[in-house]
Design a protein around this nucleic acid. Structure first.
Lengths: 144, 144
DNA sequence: GTGCTCGTACTCACCGGAAAGCATTTGATC
DNA sequence: GATCAAATGCTTTCCGGTGAGTACGAGCAC
């Protein structure tokens, strides 16, 4: 299970140092993709297949939205292997699409990591905290 | 079953000493998470899987609310093993989101512990005492 | 009331990881 | 082949996390 929040900074070569606790998990390689809500996502190869490829496979590429989702995820996907110091290069295009500056937050979200611009993350979490109790209430009401 | 109220203080490195009677239960490891109503929760790994992961698994991460709940719980979740003196590190981000200062109350709540800012807890308990009879009345009316 | 024991809180010292700067290698272009 | 740019690797410094030891206080027994 991936979890936690870690402040990191990109170096001037746009390299991201993975938090030390996550390195074993991604030592063999990882997939870096665009994510939702102006974030980037990091999956292991297996998790990417499971969480993204399998999910997208259910979407018909003949549909407008199916094509959209396929292009969104695959055009931005980069396979990479962290170097000996646990760093990965983040392509400029991904940084731009997530509006990420130098200061980022790396977040563990169960099956993947997310990379956020630090101020964007703070703003998002603020919203989340305002809404989470209502969301939880709705979940409780479903009781299935 | 976990119960009781214990006054504790965080040291200057933001470590929380678990009340001695709870240490055996969490000696193998625990999960510290954001909780509701400005509190923090402490689960054993198994209870966390049962209480949190299982519920979240039902939410599709393609939905806005699904992502929100995943990020809320996992970004705030830390797996930790108490040290020999029964202490665990509490990340700054969690303290901020629960608005906790140095002085806390550790509360046993059936299957987990909660950590509250001491004054916030006192205020909340006051409200609880005023409302518990009405809440009980409404629950009794549902009888399903 | 006195002394003992357990538990909490504090202090200090050490270790490891992050980040920045620098060095080296590789690859591309002319 | 030479020059430049980009990528990769190494090293040092600093800070935060971690551990151990100690002092203080409350509770209990004698």
């Amino acid at each position: 299970m991936l979890s936690g929040e870690y402040e990191h900074t990109l170096d001037e070569k746009n390299r991201l140092t993975l938090p030390a606790r996550f390195r074993p998990r991604f030592a063999e390689g990882l997939v870096l993709t665009r994510g939702m809500d102006n974030s980037l996502s990091i999956f292991s190869k297996e998790e990417f297949s499971r969480a993204i490829e399998a999910r997208l496979a259910k979407l018909d590429q003949l549909s407008r939205e199916g094509r959209l989702m396929h292009r969104f995820y695959f055009s931005g996907a980069v396979e990479a292997v962290p170097d000996k110091q646990g760093r990965v290069m983040v392509p400029q295009a991904l940084l731009q699409s997530a509006e990420i500056e130098r200061e980022v937050i790396v977040v563990g979200v169960f099956d993947h990591l997310e990379v956020w611009d630090r101020t964007a993350w703070r703003g998002y979490m603020k919203q989340v905290e305002e809404n989470v109790e209502d969301a939880a209430e709705r979940l409780a009401a479903q009781h299935d």
